[in-house]
Amino acid sequence: MLLGHYNYWIVIVLMMIGFYIVIAHGNLIKKIVGLSIFQTSVFIFYISMAKIDGGTAPILAEGIEQYSNPLPHVLILTAIVVGIATTALGLALAVRIKEAYGSIEEEEIQNKDNLDC
C-alpha cells in the first residue's frame, strides 16, 4: 500500500527543494538553477506516471505486448524545450542585470532601486 506511491513522494521532495531554492535564495543565478530543478522534477513526475510494470519503451517491435504510455513522453519533450528556453532567457537577464547594477544579489539590487526613487 505505502510502496505504491513512494516514487511520487520522492519526486515531490525534489520539486519542493527546487521551489525552495527559487523563493528563498537571493542569488539570481541560483534562483534559475532552482527553477530548472523544480521543472525537471515535474518532468520526472510525468514520466513516472507513464510507466507500466513490465512495459518497454514505446517503440513498436515484434513480440512485445506491453508498452509504456508514449503521451507523457511527448509532453515532456515539449516541456524540456520550454525549460531550456526559460533558462536561457533568465540567464541572459541575469547577465544584463549584473552589467547594469554590478550585482546579482536580490537584496543589493533592491537597495540600489530604493536609492534611485
Binding site: F19, V22, L28, K31, T86, L93
Partner: peptide, 10 residues
C-alpha cells in the same frame, strides 16, 4: 522582467 520571469515560470 527578471522578477516576472521567476513568478511567471513558477
Amino acid at each position: 522582467s527578471y522578477q516576472y520571469l521567476i513568478m511567471g515560470t513558477i
